[in-house]
Every structure is written in structure tokens, then in C-alpha cells.
């Protein structure tokens, strides 16, 4: 009997700590499938952020480093400069990359550091229990904006891909979501392209993935997919924001 679907070799057999309906598990699996398909498990180094994916190293079956909040791109820079032949990626949420670590991501991108960034955007600080993040949508209720985010006092949601798109050091930026099977496949393609750009062209790229957070959005997993489609996608449009090195 042929087994058609199994756990990727790059994924450890450990129980998940993520909530039901969370997008992290899907993206973890996609990364592991890609690492298997590219046969780079022995040369991949991942960097964990602070946030819900703080213990992502429990799931990835290759070398991982856990770093301080927001500093993943700076640490990745250090790793990649020394281990130039390795495939290096950071895995960061919006509370990490788009908030406390904005300086690091902007400057790693500006320098064109040749690693991949997997950026999970769920429009909230998930780990600490659903406070307003810079990516929180206008009107979105969080524990620190109980009547919804008001631009007058809390500013506007940050679009990371657009922010980075003007930097010449950036080869590729795509925003995608893990809300349905089609988009999940597109997400895999985007991550794979990012890894290709690193391996083949030595370039910086970032894939932003809109991901549901049923727990902090106070919705069921199904409702949260709908919420993502009706609220996040209209603002964070799914598109290739920049592609200066189209692959053949």
C-alpha cells in the first residue's frame, strides 16, 4: 500500500500547542514540506520569534535559534554572514516583526541580507492575549481597544510589504493567506519561491501570510476564516507586492 499523505520528515512528531483554527500549524507544515522537497533539512537554520510561535523549534526538525523579541532579522544576518551556504529563514508574527522589531526588518531588508522571512499577520498580539498590534485593523476590537481601533488615538494599520517595497535590497514580497486550500497552495508556492531566491540568487525576500487567530478574535475557527476574508483581505490585499527577480 502506498502512503500518499504523511508527516514531512522535517516536522517533529510532537503535540501542537497552537489553538484550534490557528494558521501557524498550516504554515509550519508548508515550510517542512518545502524543506523536504528541496532536500535542505541538513542545511536549514530557522529563527523563532517571541509570540505564539516562540516554541516553534518544538515542531521543526532542523536547527533552530530562539531570539529576543523582534531581533530575528538581526540574528539571521549574523548567521547568514557566517554560514553563507546554509538556508536561513526567520519565522515572525506581526507583534514581533511589525512592532518591536520594525527597525531590524527594515534594515535587514535595506541591506538586502540573503535570507527568507516568513511573516505571520493575524492583526493582534496573540501570545499576550489579544492586545492591539500595529497591524490591528481600524475598528477592530482588542483588549486594549475595547471599542475598536480608532485612528485618532492609535494610528493606522501597518502594511509591511508596502513599507519594504521601496527598498532596492528587497527581491520579492508577496502577501497571501491560509484561509482556503487554494491560498494555502499559493502560500506554499510563495515560500518556495522565497527559498529559491535565497538559494539561487542570494536575495532577501519576505512572504506575509494572513492567518486566523480564533482565540483572540473571539470567534470560532470557521467564523474567523470568514472574518479574515471580509476584513483583513480587503485591507491587506493578496498580491505580489514586489517581484524584481521573476523565476523562469
Amino acid at each position: 500500500m502506498r502512503i500518499g499523505f504523511k508527516r514531512p520528515e522535517s516536522m517533529r512528531n510532537s503535540p501542537t500547542h497552537y489553538c484550534p483554527g490557528c494558521g501557524h500549524g498550516i504554515v509550519h507544515r508548508l515550510i517542512c514540506e518545502i524543506v523536504d522537497e528541496l532536500r535542505i533539512r541538513e542545511k536549514t537554520i530557522g529563527i523563532c520569534p517571541v509570540g505564539c510561535s516562540v516554541i516553534a523549534y518544538d515542531y521543526f526538525y532542523f536547527d533552530m535559534v530562539e531570539v529576543a523579541h523582534g531581533r530575528a532579522p538581526a540574528v539571521a544576518t549574523g548567521i547568514k554572514r557566517v554560514q553563507t551556504e546554509k538556508v536561513v529563514f526567520t519565522y515572525q508574527g506581526d507583534g514581533d516583526l511589525a512592532s518591536i522589531g520594525t527597525a531590524e526588518i527594515v534594515h535587514a531588508a535595506s541591506r538586502g541580507e540573503p535570507f527568507s522571512v516568513i511573516f505571520i499577520n493575524n492583526a493582534t498580539y496573540g501570545m499576550t492575549g489579544g492586545q492591539m498590534a500595529p497591524t490591528t485593523l481600524l475598528g477592530q476590537k482588542t483588549t486594549t481597544t475595547p471599542f475598536g481601533r480608532d485612528a485618532k488615538e492609535a494610528g493606522y494599520p501597518l502594511k509591511v510589504c508596502e513599507l519594504l517595497s521601496s527598498l532596492p535590497g528587497v527581491a520579492y514580497l508577496e502577501r497571501i493567506a491560509v484561509n482556503n486550500p487554494v491560498n494555502i497552495r499559493k502560500t506554499k508556492k510563495a515560500i518556495k519561491k522565497s527559498f529559491h531566491l535565497q538559494i539561487e540568487k542570494n536575495r532577501f525576500s519576505l512572504v506575509e501570510i494572513l492567518s486566523p487567530c480564533p482565540t483572540c478574535w473571539r470567534l470560532s475557527p470557521l467564523e474567523s476564516l470568514k472574518w479574515l476574508e471580509e476584513n483583513m483581505i480587503p485591507y491587506y490585499s493578496l498580491e505580489v507586492v514586489k517581484d524584481s527577480v521573476p523565476l523562469p
Binding site: G95, S99, I100, Y125, M127, T128, G129, Q131, T143, T144
Partner: peptide, 12 residues
């Protein structure tokens, strides 16, 4: 303020 465990609930 910025959230951090176990302070978060104060600001929240």
C-alpha cells in the same frame, strides 16, 4: 506601554 507577560494585564 507595550504588552509583555506577566505585566500585560495591568495595561489591559
Amino acid at each position: 506601554a507595550y504588552p509583555i507577560t506577566p505585566q500585560t494585564e495591568i495595561v489591559q
